[in-house]
C-alpha cells in the first residue's frame, strides 16, 4: 500500500459519500444519471465476488463492503425513495451499447478463462466507461450543480491516482496488470475534458455550464 493507492481509495470513497449526501440533504437526485449509478452498482457487484472466496485484509474487505453498500443505497435513493426527482428524460444514454461490447471483450481479453476472473475483467472494463451516461446527461442539459462536479472530480481523481500507484508498484514491486492499466488510462482520459472545466470554472467559483 503506497500513498497514491491510499489517497486514490479515499478519493473514491469521498466521491461516493459526496453523491449520497447530496441526494440525501437536498432530497433530490436531479442532474444525476441513474444509469451511471446502476452501472457502478454492477461494477462493484461483479468485482467484489472474491469477498466470498478470499480474504486479503480487514482494510480490503471493509472498503469493498462500504463501496457495495453505498452504491446500492445510491441506486435505491434514485430509483425508489426520490424517484419523483429523477430526471429520466435527460438520462437517455443507451447502456446496452456499453454493457454488451464490454461483456464480449471481457470474454475475449482476460487473465484467465474462469467465471470470477471474467466477471472481474468485465467490472474493470465497465468501470472505465460507466460514467458516460452521467457525462452525456451533463452535455445534454448543458450544466451541472457544483456539488455534482465535486463528485465527478473525486471520482476521476481516484483512477488518476491509481495510475500513479501502478507506476510506483511497477518500479518497486514489479507488479503490472495490463488489463487494469489500459482500462484505467481510458477511464482517466474520459475525465480530462471535465477536469479542464472543473479547474477553469468551478474552482473559480463559477457554475459548470456548457456553451450552447
Amino acid at each position: 500500500m503506497n500513498i497514491f493507492r491510499l489517497t486514490g481509495d479515499l478519493s473514491h470513497l469521498a466521491a461516493i459519500i459526496i453523491l449520497l449526501l447530496k441526494i440525501w440533504k437536498t432530497r433530490s437526485c436531479a442532474g444525476i444519471s441513474g444509469k451511471s449509478q446502476l452501472l457502478f452498482a454492477l461494477v462493484f457487484t461483479t468485482r467484489y465476488l472474491d469477498l466470498f472466496t478470499s480474504f486479503i485484509s480487514l482494510y480490503n474487505t471493509s472498503m469493498k463492503l462500504i463501496y457495495v453498500a453505498c452504491s446500492y443505497a445510491t441506486v435505491y435513493l434514485i430509483y425508489m425513495k426520490f424517484k419523483a426527482t429523477y430526471d429520466g428524460n435527460h438520462d437517455t444514454f443507451r447502456v446496452e451499447f456499453l454493457v454488451v461490447p464490454v461483456g464480449g471483450l471481457s470474454f475475449l481479453v482476460n487473465h484467465d478463462f474462469s467465471p470470477l476472473e471474467i466477471l472481474w475483467t468485465f467490472s474493470i472494463y465497465l468501470e472505465s466507461v460507466a460514467i458516460l451516461p452521467q457525462l452525456f446527461m451533463i452535455s445534454k442539459t448543458g450544466e451541472a450543480e457544483t456539488i455534482t462536479t465535486h463528485y465527478l472530480f473525486f471520482l476521476g481523481l481516484y483512477r488518476a491516482l491509481y495510475l500513479i500507484n501502478w507506476i510506483w508498484r511497477y518500479y518497486f514491486e514489479g507488479f503490472f496488470d495490463l488489463i487494469a492499466v489500459v482500462a484505467g488510462v481510458v477511464q482517466t482520459i474520459l475525465y480530462c475534458d471535465f477536469f479542464y472545466l472543473y479547474v477553469t470554472k468551478v474552482l473559480k467559483g463559477k457554475k459548470l455550464s456548457l456553451p450552447a
Partner: peptide, 10 residues
C-alpha cells in the same frame, strides 16, 4: 476453477 487470481486492489 471457480475462483480468481488474488486481487489486493479495489
Amino acid at each position: 476453477a471457480f475462483e480468481m487470481m488474488e486481487k489486493d486492489e479495489l
